[in-house]
Design a protein around this nucleic acid. Structure first.
Lengths: 123, 123
DNA sequence: TTGTATCTACGAAGCATTTCGTATTAATAC
DNA sequence: GTATTAATACGAAATGCTTCGTAGATACAA
């Protein structure tokens, strides 16, 4: 339940595309960076061993499916990152995040909406 | 400017304690987990080679000082993490963060204040 | 049926990170 | 001065992750 960086990249593809062959995953990865076919294959096999993906071997080209949800993985990674880099302080993290110029006004609006929602739930 | 996990742990100590000897850093690390003295020493030497820390060798026990600011490192790590795990979407990250039960009401208040501040600046 | 393309399996190399053991040097105490 | 303690230097083992090469099997086309 804690994928490595390369594994996470592959999971992103599977979450986005749904169940996919090695060929499709590898082609998708190659849109952003060069990766060898057998590298992707090997990683998917490792991920299968770890239980991160399942696979259907009926046809010659196996079809892989993510066995962990994007939400759970993100939650896991975020908690680890929060502890490691921000000593568990969510507000410090948000401060860095929003202090960056990278956050657009529309994202800021979305974030405000999220906070609204949480407060509504709590009251 | 992108420390490994073990290096980050050490930087946290230096940011917190200020310039410190290997002994102090190692003792501090050992409060949370077991680390050998020479392990900490070696890491500090590597970090020195990388320019992450400087050191004063006047006395026999060298004194190490962080050469990167907590803010810059956090910003760097956060941006990488944001891209890798949340495809660059700050709002998705915040949604995960605040959806977790781990965020206390007081932290929520702080975050609201941060957003207020940013909006004030922008207008 | 022979060649070509495409797939899986798998071992192992290549790297980066972490950890530790050993040698050496310097300070301190007796 | 000698023994003990505590520091640095540094090589190298251990580990984990990523990448690739090669072998073998299967489909398909000429």
């Amino acid at each position: 339940m804690k994928p490595t960086d390369a594994e996470l990249e592959i999971l992103q593809v599977l979450w986005e595309n749904g169940p996919s062959s090695v060929r499709v995953v590898n082609d998708t990865l190659n849109e952003s960076r060069e990766v060898g076919y057998t590298t992707t294959l090997k990683l998917l096999q490792i991920m299968h061993d770890k239980g991160l993906v399942s696979r259907n071997t009926e046809s010659r080209s196996h079809i892989y499916t993510a066995q962990v949800s994007q939400e759970n993985v993100q939650k896991d990674l975020l908690n680890k990152f929060l502890d490691l880099a921000f000593q568990g302080s969510a507000s410090k993290l948000v401060m860095q995040l929003l202090g960056n110029e990278r956050t657009s006004p529309s994202e800021l609006d979305e974030i405000k909406a999220i906070i609204q929602e949480i407060e509504n739930k709590q009251s």
